[in-house]
């Protein structure tokens, strides 16, 4: 067994284990951390496939952004653990059955001719100096420029939607508006009033 194969089996096992832990463990924070582990192991599997860009991106985006967000939310919300645990046992038999059958079906599909060695020969390893990132970049900005732009649009939409849905100006909060502060003029703040001089009441 070569090193690559050993690495693959190890990381695959860790991924499956971590995934199982995510859905069974009680503590939500621990579950989130196990999900991080699953992602990292998956990234390692991809590294064995020479897809280093994807592996790094997986760690950066999923672990760095998504899971951090998850953990923020989990820690900020007051989650009632026992309520969440309810009903788990109800669905286990059916869900488990469905899951097992799906795995079987996928195995049947994947064991067909189309996925065999002849049709899909193992790709050769690239020479040193091959940069997966560079190749991806080259394709992305020329051949795939159209989907790339659309993907950018989707990100834009995400920002706009998030702001439109959540940005609130509370009427009670007091905040400063520097633009208004700077554009104030003397006449808005000061008003000269002519008043007669006042006499003192007693003459001493």
């Amino acid at each position: 067994m070569s090193f690559i194969q050993l690495a693959f089996y190890f990381f695959a096992a860790v991924t499956v284990f971590a995934a199982a832990m995510v859905i069974t463990i009680r503590n939500p924070v621990k579950a989130a951390l196990f999900l991080v582990l699953a992602f990292v192991s998956a990234a390692c599997v991809w590294l064995t496939l020479e897809a280093e860009f994807l592996a790094i991106v997986l760690v950066l985006v999923y672990v760095g952004a998504v899971m951090v967000l998850f953990l923020f939310v989990v820690m900020m919300l007051d989650i009632n653990l026992s309520r969440l645990r309810e009903g788990f046992g109800e669905y286990l038999p059916i869900g488990g059955l469905v899951a097992v059958l799906m795995v079987l079906e996928m195995a049947i599909v994947l064991s067909t001719d189309d996925f065999s060695e002849q049709r899909l020969p193992r790709p050769e390893a690239h020479t040193e100096g091959y940069s997966n990132t560079k190749e991806l970049g080259r394709l992305l900005y020329t051949f795939y420029v159209y989907p790339f732009e659309i993907a950018a649009l989707i990100l834009l939409v995400a920002i706009i939607a998030a702001i439109a849905l959540t940005l609130r100006k509370r009427p009670e909060t007091k905040y400063q508006n520097p633009a208004k502060q700077v554009s104030v003029r003397r006449d808005d703040r000061v008003r000269l009033v002519k008043m007669g001089a006042e006499r003192k009441r007693d003459e001493s």
Binding site: Y144, Y146, I150, A151, I154, V157, A158, I160, A161, L165
Partner: peptide, 17 residues
Amino acid sequence: FLVLYLGLELLSLCLYS
């Protein structure tokens, strides 16, 4: 396929919002 999927996601995201 990719373009189709991206268009679908663009639409769906807007619809969710």
